[in-house]
Amino acid sequence: MSDSGHNAQLFSESSKDSLIVAASLHRVYDAGEVQVHALRGASLKVNKGECVAIMGSSGSGKSTLMNILGCLDKPTSGSYRLCGEDVASLGRDRLADVRNQTIGFVFQSFNLLARTSAQENVELPLYYAGASGRERRSKAAEALERVGLSDRSHHHPSQLSGGQQQRVAIARALVTSPKVILADEPTGNLDSKTSVEVMDLLAELVDGGMTVVLVTHEPDIAAQAQRVIEMRDGEIVSDVRNGQVGAES
């Protein structure tokens, strides 16, 4: 199928349930003399309540796509609508609000603040949302309970295992009740046993109706998703629903 045909198909559908609508995203990095094309026209649509796994070897552009979807990076060209809003038109402050309210981002390297308790790490987004002290404490405690770490709320990241740290990071992503959780290789720094903990937690969220997009290069983890997108050289080469036979390309 040609690129333009694919796009036409994407936008012809009613986007009532579409949370993420990205069309022909390009991302070019200036690396001195040479230009690196990390994304070469990636288009995708994610509906509400879906769990999508993005797969691909390193350098395939999956992390770049994730950063653009998470409003951490901007595409060089192409359009990205999140909840019907054109992200390119948003200013710095509005983008910050989108990252705060609409998106919950989970990083491969956890990115927790060191020497800061789990509770305070989870409170961080609420602090920028302008929540009161009481609201922050109760919501953060609730999110920590949801990831099963109520008893660790006063521990610092260095006192927690990798799996526990990632669960704190997920609690932080959840605490503002976002519309979508974006997880960039959430199990990449974890061993297989703790990976299961984290994946179970994400599966639980999906069961609860949360939209989850995650990047992974482990097929068994991707297998748990309802839909698997494969990327190669900055392009989406397949988009398969699990249990569905055949691939489009």
């Binding site: 710095r92 990252r99 990115n111």
Partner: peptide, 16 residues
């Protein structure tokens, strides 16, 4: 710098 990036990722505005 990483801490600043993280704070921005969870919704800190430039003025924060």
């Amino acid at each position: 710098t990483r801490e600043i990036g993280l704070r921005m990722a969870v919704g800190a505005r430039p003025r924060n």
